[in-house]
């Protein structure tokens, strides 16, 4: 009906901007690099605070006496049994406690925000209205979570390896590497649980709740399971125990645990994509 000579809205003269590969993945990094840098700084601070103290704390007789005088339940709960060696000290203070706490919080926050938070804020709707598939959005955001946690784990590996000599830790590099992998896998599991719960409900708070539950219950089941043979079965339910139950800094990472942690995370990542595909977004 229009009398004007209509030019095609998608004329051939339009020059295609080179589309970036994995655009959704890339956007995650430009949106959250500050947060990544913040958590990296936090982890570095923990490493530089704890590890150099080993010669005067963990390795000292006085500390060993203190540990011996503590109730054994408390020692088991804190995984402080092996605090006298560099490997045990690094395991219980860094990987088992402060590092675990920090990366779990980071992973749950990222996981819950990646889809649930994005949907809640109304921005996911606009992203999905563009030329992307929901599967692509879910998987690229899952991949971004994996990469961010691997970056943190790499940082931990590099810093701990660097402090190995100066702090007289006498760590085995292969064990450290394996432990860092478990460290990443353990936080990834809670992070992916948060991603899945956020994507299922479209609410950030559900992601945070479920992700935190996975992390906290894993820790609690391990601590309670340590107390007596009667409740040892709780270990089976504890990703924390799968990862750290055999003292990987001493005895090397259990490959089965690595596969279990990353395998479950990948499974939940795939579930996230399936769930998101089926849902109404932003209602």
């Amino acid at each position: 009906m229009s009398a004007t000579t209509a030019t095609s809205p998608r004329s051939d003269s339009a020059v295609d901007r080179r589309r970036k590969p994995l655009p959704v993945f890339g956007k995650v990094f430009s949106d959250t690099w500050r947060s990544l840098a913040g958590w990296a700084a936090g982890l570095a601070a923990v490493i530089f605070l704890y590890l150099p103290l080993f010669p005067s704390i963990g390795g000292s007789d006085q500390m060993q006496q203190l540990i011996n005088s503590m109730p054994p339940q408390l020692v088991h709960a804190l995984n402080y049994d092996q605090i006298g060696t560099g490997a045990g000290y690094t395991q219980s203070t860094l990987f088992g406690l402060m590092g675990f706490l920090l990366t779990s919080i980071a992973a749950v926050g990222w996981g819950a925000g990646a889809i649930g938070g994005d949907e809640e804020s109304g921005q996911l709707e606009l992203t999905l209205a563009h030329s992307v598939t929901r599967t692509q959005v879910a998987l690229e955001r899952f991949l971004a979570l994996v990469v961010k946690l691997l970056i943190l784990a790499t940082l931990v590996f590099v810093l701990v390896a660097a402090l190995n000599g100066p702090a007289q830790l006498q760590l085995d590099t292969a064990n450290l590497l394996g432990c860092c992998l478990l460290f990443a896998g353990l936080s990834l599991l809670s992070g992916t649980a948060a991603l899945l719960a956020g994507a299922s409900t479209g609410r950030r708070i559900w992601g945070v709740g479920v992700g935190a539950a996975v992390a906290v219950l894993g820790y609690v089941f391990n601590a309670v399971g340590n107390q007596s043979p009667d409740v040892e079965w709780l270990h089976r339910l504890s990703p924390y125990y799968w990862a750290y139950g055999n003292n990987p800094m001493n005895s090397g990472a259990n490959p089965l645990a690595v596969v279990a942690l990353f395998g479950l995370a990948v499974l939940m990542g795939a579930l996230t994509a399936m769930v998101l595909r089926r849902r109404d977004v932003g209602v």
Binding site: R10, S13, V15, R17, R19, K27, S30, V132
Partner: peptide
């Protein structure tokens, strides 16, 4: 960022 997930945009 939206260009990256949109149709081709003329410079």
């Amino acid at each position: 960022q939206y260009v990256d997930i949109s149709g081709p945009v003329r410079p």
